[in-house]
Design a protein around this nucleic acid. Structure first.
Lengths: 240, 240
DNA sequence: CCGTATTTGTCCGTATGTATG
DNA sequence: ACATACATACGGACAAATACG
């Protein structure tokens, strides 16, 4: 593990001191570990050694242990008493369960966003979809992935519901673990997915709650099918 | 705070030792604090003093601090750096947001339960509703509250989705904090609520997913209205 | 506004349990 | 099976920040 981060400075910089004014080392360690896990920097199933991580982050073991408990509740790691902490592995069955919940929340996001979205947020959504169409031709998987995250984040803000945002983000994190578990990357059919995004924006813009809800639920289920399709038949070309 | 719990035994009993074989002190402390918070033993907004709780539980501050981090992620407490940990207060606005999410999940529970419920679970649901009708006449608020929890727990099991259960339980916990915050107890109109439960059981028994979903969503929204009604007009008698 | 007491934040030592040869 | 090495679990000491008089 590379021993670098916002933490781990021998001589704390002014910025680091400012961070510590508001955040405990435990919270900073939690965020840093969350970043390393969701980014794939730490592999799924990997064991998190207290002393290694503590030294890598330049803190003692106390804050690291506290961060572990938070990450456990957040569903990112699994704690086994007297054995250690491991990056959580999400099975196919669990992923299907999570998708069911996510679809329900995604539908709610669509309904609320159609009610509450502001003009500037609509502009942002349209800008993201525009970038998606531009990307469409070159098939850049990683860039598309980021735009997709941005799209759903804008919708989430537009829904104006903090509890919804909290639970939705956790589900997305868990699905990322599954994606990494299965080593499937770029399974999205970008042209199809982009058109779905476009239709969603139009529904939200028309303030059509029912349509936005339905399109987002279907969008999630389609994403799941595309992912499973990539898993089940890796050699076969997938129809839209 | 009463210094009693499964923990805090000077001479650990055999049962306590068995507990410790599988659970760390941090996890036990977390559960115990969760119980004390959700039961109202510790008041909403109260400050949780590390040393007091540690001595009350008969452990050191380390496990208590770890439990705090987990409870923070679980939405039961709020951590302010260098100031302390407080039982979370849920405002009216937050409660409304949580209700929106809960309604969506409750609808999903109804749909999945209608798909997947087993005969013995249906029997359990009917038994609970029967008890509710029996209670109906004597208007026992606390007993009804417990039956209500049991009813929704059976449905949750019948839905057979662990992720759904996790997120649903957290939302219910948060709404309990709101209920306690507003000091509203027994705001349910028991006859009406019981009939709603009965209708839900019938829909699930008929495997009518759409109806079960709709009835449960409405049930949640009605519960919210009954609660808000009790808040807005405390002096007035509430109509159904 | 300052000094003191209390509380939180962090670190490290020790005990206990687990994995390995 | 045993012994050794290693990792985690817990407790306690010290430092820093906050609250109080």
């Amino acid at each position: 593990m590379p021993p670098q981060s916002e933490l781990n400075k021998r001589a704390p910089t002014a910025a680091a001191i400012e961070l510590l004014r508001e955040n405990s080392l435990a919270m900073l360690a939690q965020r840093e570990l969350e970043r390393r896990i969701t980014s794939g920097e730490i592999a799924v199933g990997a064991k998190l050694n207290e002393v290694d991580i503590a030294s890598a982050l330049g803190v003692s073991r106390g804050p690291v242990r506290e961060a572990f408990r938070a990450l456990d509740q957040a569903g990112l790691v699994r704690v086994e008493k007297n054995r250690g902490v491991f990056v959580r592995q999400v099975s196919l069955e669990e992923a299907n369960e999570i998708y069911e919940v996510r679809a329900a929340l995604e539908g709610l996001i669509g309904r609320l966003a159609a009610q509450r979205i502001q003009p500037d947020e609509l502009d942002q959504l349209r800008a993201v979809v525009k970038k998606m169409f531009a990307l469409d031709k070159s098939r850049k998987g990683e860039a598309y992935f980021l735009l997709n995250v941005e799209f759903h984040d804008i919708l989430l803000r537009a829904a104006r519901n903090a509890a919804l945002a909290t639970h939705y983000r956790r589900l997305v994190n868990e699905l990322d673990l599954y994606r990494r578990e299965t080593l499937v990357r770029g399974s999205e059919n970008i042209p199809v997915s982009t058109r779905e995004h476009e239709a969603i924006v139009n529904a939200v813009a028309k303030r059509d709650e029912r349509l936005a809800e339905r399109l987002l639920v279907e969008h999630v289920l389609h994403s799941r099918e595309r992912l499973h399709g990539a898993l089940a038949k890796p050699a076969r070309t997938r129809a839209a």
